[in-house]
Amino acid sequence: MHELSIANNIISEVEAAARANNVQSVASVTLSIGRLCGIVPGALQFGFEIAREGTVLSSAKLLIEEESVVVWCPDGDHSVELMDMVFRCPVHGCQTPEILSGKGMEILRFEVADSCSNSQETIAS
């Protein structure tokens, strides 16, 4: 269940960015998770729901986009997407040790929840 550790990382990164952008509440966070990361989306959702308590993300949704595994085929000189974890080019049959994508774990963006935050800012200033 390392997804709880990952969820904590997501929350601290988004919290820092929310603070920097004067955001009071986050509506959703969008992630891109590579299929080679070994992250179970359901477990990450579960971990996120525990870890978000008491933060600006307390009512935030977690949206996960899957990053496919793309490798370089040395025989055919082209990139190719792997549908399973067999590191061989489906066209040329050669081994494909070079991974172009599928290992990334990125927070793409977050959406601000409260439309009143702007008005609060103007009142405060």
Binding site: V14, A27, G104, E106, I107, L108, R109, F110, E111, V112
Partner: peptide
């Protein structure tokens, strides 16, 4: 809704 592009490694 305002969207903040983060593009940050988890």
């Amino acid at each position: 809704p305002r969207v903040v592009e983060l593009r940050k490694n988890v």
